[in-house]
Design a protein around this nucleic acid. Structure first.
Length: 467
RNA sequence: GCGCCGGUAGCUCAAUUGGCAGAGCAUUUGACUCUUAAUCAACAGGUUCCGGGUUCAAGUCCCGGCCGGCGCACCA
């Protein structure tokens, strides 16, 4: 089958629907347009045929008549899913449907597979994820969710640019995977004959750019973590990381709540929405609660990073959390938080004052050296963002890395490695700086009201098919 | 990685206690000059995910494998 290499397209369905909304039933506009799209439905009726055609903006009816339409017999045999280019007059049928009355037409592509039941669509997860192209045609919710993700990314960029942040790119292939606690993917560079890792975070590179004098930078990009899959985890996911010189973590919290609530307004038009059937509000400001106060509230007794290790261990054991011998009070407090509080945080909230033990890159708190100026925001029971006043002291940074190295030696395969280049960068002087990471996929889940991360990733990671 | 659940026509789904594998849509053919998931008629469409086993008889029961969903673990 031969099809043309191009089509002189000049009109979109949504624009026609609004431009000719005034057209009365049975009225003809006199305007001839070239539209193109996919045949979604076809209703033939003897010497008439009606098709519903969809393009990227919406749908419009095609109205073909044996007396007018060229190659009418062939038009009436189009397959659902075929791409067509149409030339014809914009009219409204007697029954009130805005239509393009087909004078001439051409098939632009043939669909050799169908797009599922025309009423039920495609629901099989395997088929939807492995062939998203079919899912997108069959299921309007899939189109809406991925569109919202795109609008979210646009809004995030525009708001970062508006706040004078500069978009930068840093290496994805790293000799040392660092900037977060996670297992990496390994690869190998042939010419250099060296082992490389896909990045688990761009954090250290971005701070080196701040050392270099770029006072506000952000990177919106993919990171890779060799961890399990779940409705909330994909091995590759998109993160916004952002650094601002002269800010501390409080300034960054203000920025985060403004950014996220602003994105909700840009995409949804409101901060008041629903997530999975339950009311959810993006509205700023978000409450700021210290980790110790939340855990104390949940336990009904005052605990903190200064509570004895023995007592914290006992509290964890009572909750069936296995305590690793390398854990100190800080790690225990963080584990208690996860066990007792995390899943109950619904509307966005900042959890602050993380123990230094679980925050190897964060600056010590001005009032308590066992704590850091760090926050994480939680929404719908899961972590949404992570940020802190950055540790700028190269001596302290080295000792933190050494602590991580001890954890690694004790069997923690997600502990960070010592990055000498990064320490040297700090020795050139990092000004007081606050940093932020936000998981874009999880934000997209909230904005699109989707229960699974796979629904907001066009092509989620799946197990390859084998015999 | 572990547990629970699922996989039947291209798609969406039925199939009673283990007893002839079905429907709608799509496809094919025919009818129809204002349809809206058009309607009507007819034809065709199957390795019941794969491989073993039990049985007179397996979509159904048992064992192993593949893929998916959810939960746990890991993590964001």
């Amino acid at each position: 089958m031969t099809t043309p290499n191009s089509f002189a397209h000049n009109a979109y369905s949504a624009a026609l629907q609004s431009a000719y909304a005034h057209l009365a039933d049975g009225e003809e506009s006199g305007a001839v347009v070239n539209v193109a799209g996919r045949v979604m439905l076809l209703r033939t009726q003897g010497k008439l045929a009606f098709a519903t055609m969809r393009d990227s903006t919406g749908e419009i009816q095609l109205f073909a008549l044996a007396a007018l339409t060229g190659e009418f017999e062939e038009f009436a045999k189009l397959h659902l899913g075929d791409w067509v280019g149409i030339t014809g007059e914009v009219v409204r049928t007697k029954r009130g449907e805005l239509s393009v009355k087909v004078a001439s037409w051409v098939r632009l592509a043939e669909a050799l597979h169908n797009f599922g039941d025309k009423w039920a669509g495609i629901s099989d997860f395997d088929l939807r994820y492995r062939h998203r192209e079919a899912d997108l045609w069959a299921n309007p919710v899939s189109r809406r969710s991925l569109s919202r993700r795109s609008e979210m990314l646009r809004s995030v960029r525009e708001r970062c640019w508006a706040a004078n942040f500069m978009e930068v790119e840093t290496p994805m292939l790293n000799a040392i995977p660092t900037g977060a606690a996670a297992r990496p993917f390994r690869t190998h560079h042939n010419a250099l004959d060296s082992e490389l890792f896909l990045r688990i975070a761009p954090e250290l590179w971005l701070k080196r750019l701040v050392v270099g004098g770029f006072e506000r930078v952000f990177e919106l990009g993919r990171v890779f973590r060799n961890e399990g899959l779940s409705p909330r985890h994909n091995p590759e996911f998109t993160m916004l990381e952002l650094y601002a010189a002269y800010w501390d973590y409080r300034d960054m919290m203000s920025f985060v709540e403004e950014l996220v609530s602003g994105v909700a307004i840009d995409v949804l038009g409101t901060t008041e929405t629903e997530y999975q059937g339950r009311a959810f509000s993006f509205a700023a400001p978000w409450p700021r609660r210290t980790m110790a106060s939340l855990v104390s509230e949940a336990l009904g007794e005052d605990v903190s990073v200064h509570t004895s290790l023995e007592h914290l261990t006992q509290l964890l054991t009572e909750r069936d959390v296995e305590v690793h011998p390398s854990w100190g009070p800080g790690r225990c407090l963080a584990e208690l938080f996860e066990a007792t509080c995390e899943q109950d945080l619904w509307d966005p909230v900042f959890v602050t004052e993380y123990p230094v033990e679980v925050s190897p890159l964060a600056r010590r708190h001005a009032e308590d050296p066992e704590l850091t100026e760090r926050f994480e925001s939680y929404a719908a029971g899961r972590e949404l963002s992570n940020g802190f006043s950055e540790l700028i002291d190269p001596v302290d940074q080295r000792s933190r890395f050494e602590q991580q190295a001890r954890l690694a030696a004790a069997g923690d395969d997600e502990a960070m490695q010592i990055d000498e280049d990064y320490i040297k960068a700090l020795e050139w002087g990092l000004p007081p700086t606050a940093g932020l990471g936000i998981g874009m996929d999880r934000l997209a889940m909230l904005i699109a009201d989707e229960p699974s991360i796979r629904e907001v990733i066009a092509f989620p990671t799946l197990k390859p098919l084998r015999d």
